[in-house]
Computed example of a mutant assay.
Amino acid sequence: MPEWSVTEPRKLTFEEPVRDLHVRVVNGTVNVVGTEEGSARLEVSELEGPPLVVTQQRGTLTVAYEDLPWKGFLKWLDRKGWRRSAVVSLAVPAGTRVEVGVVGANAFVSGLRGPSTIKGVTGDTTLVGLSGPVRADTVSGNLEAQAVTGDLRFNSVSGDLTVVEGAGSSVKADSVSGSMIVDLDPEGPTDVRLTSVSGEIAIRLPAPADADIEANTASGTISNAFDDLRVRGQWGAHKITGRLGAGTGKLRATTVSGSIALLRRPPRDEEPWEGRAGAEPGPTPGAAPGPVDGPAGGAGDNFPSGPGDA
């Protein structure tokens, strides 16, 4: 079994096929990019503390610390008190199955067609252009997913979830206190299920939308941009129910004390002026967007751009 002990910045190329990638890093950054090349490449550009052990066996490439197992990863503590950090970048075939574990490190994963599993303790994770199924578990780390077309499952204690241009058939998320901002732009029916105890939930749906809706909060506020939906509530509880379009998809959102907002995306046929032939120049880039159409009561607020804006 080929094995390398990486003690300083180094580059490695792996000619043997890679079908599975396992990465476990403490502090620093992990970058994983899917490519159409047959080989895999690794670059460790910064390294502090104990060595990273790199192994390749039966199609599985592993980059990790010896004392950091995948099992029980989210409960791992560095009892030996080593100060460690690494900046690791990998390019692997796009169909590779990927497992990334980060403790205090940030992870960026893009361009993969295979299944991806992310575990993070305090580091933030960014996912871009993944078409395979994704499972992400964090303690307090935030997750941002952009243009992810595979099924997305997210579990966290206090981490925030941000989905931008979500086009997958399924988004399921559970959190205790983390906020959830989900911007949906699917090609077909979508099954969305979001649950939080005290976190706020904001969902932007396409226009026209096609979903059966049920969203409720025990003591939070409700905002609704769709006239076809009913808002009911007494005492502290509020609920939004109804059907948009044929009701083929499903949307279920539940929070105990957080607020819920249902917002509206612009119709697909409303192209930006600069995208039409012979159109007048559009607004200055970077200008603030206009309000979302909807009834009073908060539905006209701009869609938040990230967890910090929720």
Rank of each mutant, 00 (worst) to 15 (best):
E3Q: 15
S5E: 11
S5P: 03
T7S: 11
T7I: 10
E8G: 12
L12N: 04
T13G: 10
F14P: 02
V18E: 03
R19P: 01
V23M: 05
V30N: 01
G38I: 03
S39A: 14
A40T: 10
R41S: 07
V44I: 09
L47P: 02
P50Y: 08
P50V: 13
V53W: 04
G59C: 07
G59K: 02
V63H: 02
E66G: 03
E66C: 10
D67E: 15
P69N: 09
K75M: 12
K75Q: 15
W76Y: 13
W76T: 05
D78N: 14
K80E: 15
A86Y: 03
A86E: 07
V88Y: 03
A94Y: 06
G95M: 05
E99F: 12
V100G: 02
V100F: 07
G101S: 03
G104F: 08
N106K: 06
V109Y: 13
V109L: 07
S110E: 09
S110M: 04
G111T: 12
L112W: 13
G114Q: 00
P115Y: 06
S116T: 15
I118A: 03
K119W: 12
T122W: 11
G123K: 00
D124W: 06
T125G: 01
L127R: 03
V128H: 15
L130E: 04
L130C: 01
P133L: 01
V134P: 00
V134C: 02
R135F: 06
T138M: 08
V139R: 12
S140N: 07
N142S: 15
A145I: 07
V148C: 14
V148I: 10
V148D: 10
T149N: 09
T149K: 04
D151E: 13
S156K: 01
V157S: 09
G159E: 00
L161M: 08
V164K: 12
V164Q: 15
G166E: 08
A167Y: 01
S170M: 14
S177P: 07
S177N: 10
G178A: 02
S179D: 14
V182A: 10
D185A: 15
D185L: 14
E187K: 14
G188V: 03
D191P: 11
D191F: 09
V192D: 07
V192Y: 06
L194Y: 09
T195G: 01
S196H: 02
V197R: 05
V197T: 08
S198M: 11
P206G: 12
P208T: 01
I213Q: 04
A218K: 07
D227S: 11
L229M: 14
R230F: 00
R232W: 10
R232F: 06
G236N: 05
K239F: 05
R243C: 02
G245E: 00
G245W: 06
A246T: 00
T248Y: 11
T254W: 06
T255D: 00
T255M: 06
I260E: 04
A261E: 08
L263V: 10
R264S: 09
R264D: 02
P266Y: 04
E270G: 10
E271G: 04
P272E: 07
G275R: 13
G278Q: 09
A279M: 10
P281I: 01
P281E: 14
P281G: 12
T284C: 12
P295L: 11
P295K: 14
G298R: 12
G298E: 00
N302F: 09
G306L: 04
